[in-house]
């Protein structure tokens, strides 16, 4: 089980901030493919990965990052702090 978090418009498009996912995906990209296959709202949220950023265990990383041992994955648009 892994905690999957969504922020900003990704959260709005998927319709929830956080969920637990049973997955054996080896990478973030593989997890994204599993989610997209679930329902149309995931397909819509993950349509353009270049518009998304990902953090694994609260560290920014890439979509090809491995998920082995990860507790938390978060998807969000590019950040707008400051």
């Amino acid at each position: 089980m892994i905690d999957v978090l969504y922020f900003a418009w990704v959260r709005e498009r998927i319709g929830l901030p956080k969920e637990k996912i049973e997955t054996s995906a080896a990478t973030v990209a593989a997890l994204v493919e599993e989610l997209k296959a679930r329902e149309e709202r995931y397909e819509a949220a993950f349509a353009d990965l270049s518009a998304l950023r990902v953090a694994v265990d609260q560290e920014l990383t890439d979509f090809d990052a491995p998920l082995a041992g990860a507790r938390e994955v978060a998807f969000f648009p590019p950040m707008t702090g400051g």
């Binding site: 922020f7 900003a8 953090a55 969000f76 648009p77 590019p78 950040m79 707008t80 702090g81 400051g82």
Partner: peptide
């Protein structure tokens, strides 16, 4: 600090104007 926290700290701004809300694009 400013350059990095603008695009590397996990904050997202949403503006409300004219009754509409929109996420500020990076």
């Amino acid at each position: 600090l400013m350059d990095y926290l603008k695009s590397r700290a996990p904050f997202w701004k949403k503006e409300s104007a004219g009754g509409d809300q929109s996420w500020v694009a990076a």
